[in-house]
Design a protein around this nucleic acid. Sequence first.
DNA 1: CCGTATCCTGATAGATACTG
DNA 2: CAGTATCTATCAGGATACGG
Lengths: 164, 164
Amino acid sequence: MTTDTAVLEGGLADRSAWSARDRCSISRAMQVVGTRSAMLLMREAFYGTRRFDDFASRVGITEAVAAKRLRELVEAGLLERRPYQEPGQRTRHEYLLTDMGRDLVPAALALMQWGDRYLSDDGGPLTLRHADCGGRIAVHVTCDRGHDVPLDQLAVEVNRPTRH
Amino acid sequence: MTTDTAVLEGGLADRSAWSARDRCSISRAMQVVGTRSAMLLMREAFYGTRRFDDFASRVGITEAVAAKRLRELVEAGLLERRPYQEPGQRTRHEYLLTDMGRDLVPAALALMQWGDRYLSDDGGPLTLRHADCGGRIAVHVTCDRGHDVPLDQLAVEVNRPTRH
DNA sequence: CCGTATCCTGATAGATACTG
DNA sequence: CAGTATCTATCAGGATACGG
């Protein structure tokens, strides 16, 4: 294990162990939700969209693209395709968030927060609040001892993969 | 203004105001860093990489792609291309994080955290710590009254654009 | 070192038309 | 409503070669 302190300041010394592209979790995450359509479909799922047509129209993509992405997201485990039946109707399918999909919310919110700040003239079209208390939502980087961690106090530890 | 409570539970009723794709901050953010190479170049910048060749080799992309993405990231305002000169050397350029680029860190960390959890067999190649106290880093969704907000307690408020 | 130029492949995604 | 099929344009990105 190697520990570097204040990465954003001094840089990361030992990179050999993880510069391998295929182990980087950001890289892997981007392979799954690294297209505009995939992330926006997840956004829709967060907002409660369940049906194919709604996904396509609300995201603003063609049915062909929606079908392909949804299939990939189901296969990757972010969504679950489940049959359901309304009384007197034929069987349909709905797309539901899995735990894996739900846990992507912080990443989506972090992107939204960043976009609201830097890519929008009026702070963005949505304000998120804590349903219980009405406080405004923000995404924070914290440590498990409860400190809010400024970006210049991030340290990186390299975990070498266990060999056999 | 319209407020919906517990979006992840009940769904979002009033979508007409923001379903316009071009105002969604997630969509805009994905236009800027929605490719694997762009996000990984930003990751490198977070880790202190400054030079063209290092960007290309550490991210594992060709120089052509690196050149194009870096140019776009500079143009979008996430990086700054600055000339510098070592004594006795000719002028070179380095790519430095701007505030806008630095503020993308939480989004990158959120993706990393998600990837560590769901796309890695061993928790991921890196552990991030708070340099001051050594505590493990995590990305949290909180409200400005200090509550940690569970994902099922997110409420959405739609801000209509001001007309004239 | 720091890129540019060219060529090529595959993925992303729009448009349109069609099926159960 | 929930897709599939086809056709097309644009973009992401690898390979290779070249220039300051």
